[in-house]
């Protein structure tokens, strides 16, 4: 992705942080960003690492007798 895109996304992020701070300074302003990042990494770990070693099979798994 081009630099312009990243700058655009960063501006949205900065906007949300500012809005959250303005709304309630007591809350951690990037809470949902951190939660989303950790959550996404957890999902990727579970589906791409744990599942790969346990339940992933070739596509013709059910066709082979």
């Amino acid at each position: 992705m081009k630099l312009v895109g990243w700058i655009f996304l960063f501006l949205i992020f900065a906007g949300t942080v500012a809005a959250q701070y303005w709304d309630d300074p007591a809350k951690f302003p990037a809470y949902y960003f951190v939660y989303g990042l950790l959550g996404c990494l957890l999902l990727l770990f579970v589906t791409k690492v744990v599942a790969k070693k346990s339940i992933m099979r070739k596509e013709d798994y059910y066709d082979r007798s």
């Binding site: 992705m1 996304l9 949205i12 992020f13 949300t16 809005a19 959250q20 709304d23 990037a30 809470y31 949902y32 960003f33 951190v34 939660y35 989303g36 990042l37 959550g39 996404c40 990494l41 990727l44 791409k48 599942a51 790969k52 339940i55 992933m56 099979r57 070739k58 596509e59 798994y61």
Partner: peptide, 29 residues
């Protein structure tokens, strides 16, 4: 804020691993 930050974070994580996520043509039991 919640509805923007969650997908932003998801996108960043995806982009970082985008060459790993596609994987092989397999099915999950």
């Amino acid at each position: 804020v919640e509805a923007l930050q969650l997908p932003l974070a998801t996108f960043v994580a995806f982009w970082f691993f985008r060459h790993k996520i596609l994987g092989e043509p397999k099915i999950a039991l």
